[in-house]
Nucleic acid binder design. Sequence first.
RNA 1: GGGCGCAUGGUCUAGUUGGUUAUGACGUCGCCCUUACAAGGCGAAGGUCCCCAGUUCGAAUCUGGGUGCGCCCACCA
Length: 791
Amino acid sequence: MDNVYDYAKTEKRLLEYWRKEKIYKFNPNSEKPIYSVDTPPPTVSGAMHIGHSASYTQQDVIVRYKKLRGFEIFYPFGTDDNGLPTERLIEKLKNVKAVKMDRQKFIELCLSTLKEIRPDFVNDWKKIGMSCDFDVFYSTIDEHCRRVSQRSFIELYEAGREYRKKAPTVWCPVCETAIAQVELEDKELESQFNDIVFKTEDGKDLIISTTRPELIPSIVAMFAHPDDDRYKGLFGKKAKAPLFDIWVPILPDEKAEPEKGTGIVMCCTFGDQTDIEWYKQHKLPLRISITKDGKMTDLAGKYKGMEIKEARKVIIEDLEKEGLLKGIKKIKHPVNVHDKCGTEVEILETEQWFIKYLDLKKEFLKSGKEMKWRPKHMRNRYDNWIKGLKWDWCISRQRFFGVPFPVWYCKNCSEVILADKKSLPVEPLKDKPPVKICAKCRCREFIPEKDVFDTWATSSLTPKIAAELFKNHKIFKKLYPMSMRPNAHDIITFWLFNTVVKSRMHDKVNPWKDIMISGWVLDPHGKKMSKSKGNTIAPQDILEKYGADVLRFWATNTKLGEDVRFREEDLLRGRKVLVKLWNASRFVNTFKTEGKTKKEHVTDLWIKSKLSKVIAKATKSLDEYEYSSAKKVIIDFFFRDFCDFYLEMVKYRLYSNDKASKNSAINTLREVLFDVLILLAPYTPYITDELYLILFSYKKSIHLEQWPISKKIRVSAEVRKTKYEEIGDLLVKVVEKIRKWKTDNKIGLGNEVEELTLSGVKELSNLKGEIKGIMKINKLNLKTSPKLKIN
RNA sequence: GGGCGCAUGGUCUAGUUGGUUAUGACGUCGCCCUUACAAGGCGAAGGUCCCCAGUUCGAAUCUGGGUGCGCCCACCA
């Protein structure tokens, strides 16, 4: 064995060895119980980030543990690589603009670029030691996923769960697509209240306060609170908007808050959610003054064609010129922006596809209760989200690189023509509809749907996508619903919730039994990492500098669900552990066993009993997904009990002439080390396998071994009488005492002591020789006074 | 505004069901090249466990209230 552990060489070699030996291969014909994992498919974004490396390690530790526990592991790997994020990535990498390109060419460019970058991207996950079967692979844009996704659409349409409707929709004017409620983000923006003069029928001034004067051309009504004395007399009358000569009714509604602004508000189609509610409730007309690309429409008259913000500025200037602007108040207020691009969203009336699910809120909440959440409190986020849902799920996107809707429309009567399920996946822009003639109106011409699915419409199907990679229906039933879904807390409302929705709708089941929610990696000050702030850490650099085991050791420091601050110093602990493991193993490896143990020694029994308790605790913790507390127990044992004490306690025996005692020590060293390596294998899979292959090598890999069982130590009644557990603990205390005494007296620990008197350890009179051997004392006197003391 | 979480030596952190002296790491200081390990070993100093009140023989831990920080949601005239 080398004196120093070369992590770089070893990790590279083992990664290849595992692949070649198919250590993590899923065997669908296995008789073992299956543990199936709905692995999160990372969004292809160029490179794995530090948050990925942490959360994927956390889940991998659990999966590796389950494998050692004897489960057949179904742990697929996929990449999420369609939709807006991918379009943005490709636009950046290839310096193109999707809107300005031929659609088909852009799609081809996306596909070819993905093919280029995907292997390197996935490779990072392999390097950190993920125990996935990387042959069970999918990409959310590949043929298989398109088929599953389109079939899901058709089935839900047939089940009456989907509808297409022209309705107010949240719209991003930069990405020029509809987006879903979940894609909204808050952003605190500088703005101003503009006090604008409207005129009543009898020519009086009516001041309203608005942040969005450019929406005046969209005004359809004015509202005040029914009890607001200032405006009570005006209800039912009309008012005229400035600059545009639009007359609108003044109406009462309780949603108008007297304290806000001047207490009277203009209702425009559409400024916000309330406008939509008023529009529906009061059956107001529709006046759209903003185009899909964020410009003013014809309705805006002389402002037509201006950008929204430009129009706002010019309108304010014009109002001022006409003396219709009574005041300006600077404010900061939260605005909904698109999470992908930060643009302030608009609400436009467009034709979109929706999944109807607001009626199923109760059922979704029930599902949430049925699944086991770790940590438990994360379910609150799921519940809160469902309770706050206001929109049906808009699944259509006016984009290019995504799974197409398997739909055509009759040119004459707009009848929906669905693709034939057998011919999926289809691409309506290229493929012909399955019928030649519209059954409803006999028309022979059809219009293909151009829209693509929201990415979550596809990724919400990952449990089925993965399980259906196997054609055999029997195995599908064993894999789905899955045992466990790991995901970070930020996508509970996206991916997790949407997956529940699909599973409930399709199969009336929950997609998984357990949910494991991991936290985020923050910068050293506890702030979110982001490229724009320049505070990101590249896991690739850590892999290079410290190796995967150290990265993994660090990633499992904090409790499940907690955010971790990244500080490079914290990596050092992991490196220490590797060095210690290597050196302790190297030491153990220098001794060869000479057959079975004949008579067990007190200290040997003591360490085994400690180990047994550690195994029990670690097992219990890991069953609850508490990888960090399990690790702590194991590492504490390894460092303190095994290295600091046991190794030192047996040295004098290892170098003695008492063969039985020596052999018992060697056997115990090997037994305990063997178990320790397995206990740590989920955390540091590389070094533990390397040491296993050097010292034990019973199987092809430590990862094919069995998790140790917390065994009762079998000893004769006579031995039990020796109370080896208590005696061992006492011996540890004595060793500590003598060490301190030696240090205090500036005597090297290796130096012999001529004579020493210990008091208060009558129980150890049988172990006098032991203490002398361990602590290198020539003459030891034991006294019986009450306190453990050195005289 | 609603919900959830967090608060422990200079720094980061453990502490599942209340029980002697509160865990470990980094940093600091002292000693030691002891036949696995100097990327080490041994030892030391350093804490009103955020505040207040309560329950209890006993609270870092349980209950109530407060403060600070973070996250999610709502608000967006």
